[in-house]
Design a protein around this nucleic acid. Structure first.
Length: 270
DNA sequence: CCCGGAACCTGAAGGC
DNA sequence: TGCCTTCAGGTTCCGG
């Protein structure tokens, strides 16, 4: 599942291959993935443009185009962007962005991924909370986000309009690192707990970027390689296994229809 | 505004 | 062996 560290890794690894190159053609095998404008306009606006930069906002990846427009891509759950000349398996290729010199294959078994053209980055900023690794994110900001909320803190961490980029895996990891039960209501956290959670969020995301992301299920880097961040998971996807800290069996419960993993001893009940 | 659940999708895994 | 059900989760939409 591409979350912030995975999208950051993809961005970093795409830059040397696409920046300064021109879009020569766009092939679409699953047209519903283009949100706007129309298919014809999407292709017409894209073809001929030079990619002047690649960026990330939350879990969104975007390409700056010489026209000033922005190509926005969201990989959702199973999407990947592969730099290939001849993919060995084209079953799940939903689109190909042809550049002079290289082709970018948008692979997505579940067809949840999307692309769209935007006039500016402001369109993303309007619906997204602060970047958790940005200078403007700190425990005071997090306290403001969580206070007076009755929803489970896990659900709040997953709300992209509150904080941008945290997904199911890293929400579980950050809550474990801070020793906070995922069902605790946002408003119930003490000042000390909020500080710990803020630090844990940043530490967990930064470490995962250092490991080039976590390859559970369908995440691949542009060269087809996997990341190694999942080898360091303490609770995520470890249901039924013993906690590394205390030996207690890691539990899994549904929160907002998401599997939530935690240690019942290290993260005491609300 | 706030909260929770369904829908969008389809491969993989487990049950019988 | 094979059919059926369930699970996976990022985002948006809808109802209370």
């Amino acid at each position: 599942m591409p979350e912030l560290p995975e999208v950051e890794t993809i961005k970093n690894e795409l830059i040397p291959y696409v920046v300064g190159h021109r879009v020569t053609d766009v092939t679409l095998f699953w047209e519903k993935m283009v949100i706007r404008p129309s298919i014809a306009e999407f292709r017409a606006h894209l073809i001929g443009q030079e990619v002047s930069g690649v960026g990330r906002r939350g879990k969104y990846l975007f390409f700056n185009l010489s026209s000033g427009e922005i190509l926005v891509i969201h990989l959702r759950m199973t999407g990947s962007l592969l730099l290939e000349t001849a993919p060995s398996d084209n079953r799940f290729t939903r689109a190909i962005i042809h550049l002079d010199g290289v082709s970018l294959y948008f692979r997505d078994p579940r067809k949840f991924g999307i692309m769209l053209l935007a006039d500016s980055i402001n369109e993303l900023d309007d619906r997204l909370g602060p970047e958790p690794l940005g200078d403007d994110f700190n425990s005071a900001v997090l306290a403001q986000i969580l206070c007076s909320r009755s929803a489970p803190v896990k659900a709040l961490l997953l709300d992209q309009s509150l904080i941008a980029g945290i997904g199911n895996m890293y929400a579980d990891e950050a809550l474990f690192a801070a020793g906070i039960h995922p069902l605790r209501s946002g408003g119930s956290l003490s000042g000390d707990e909020t500080k710990r959670l803020c630090h844990s969020i940043r530490q967990v995301l930064q470490a995962a970027i250092g490991n080039k992301g976590a390859s559970v299920q369908n995440y691949f880097r542009p060269d087809g390689e996997t990341g190694t961040a999942h080898y360091e998971f303490k609770v995520a996807h470890r249901g039924g296994e013993p906690c590394f800290a205390c030996g207690t069996t890691i539990k899994r419960i549904p929160i907002r229809n998401r599997g939530s993993y935690f240690c019942p001893k290290c993260q005491p009940e609300p």
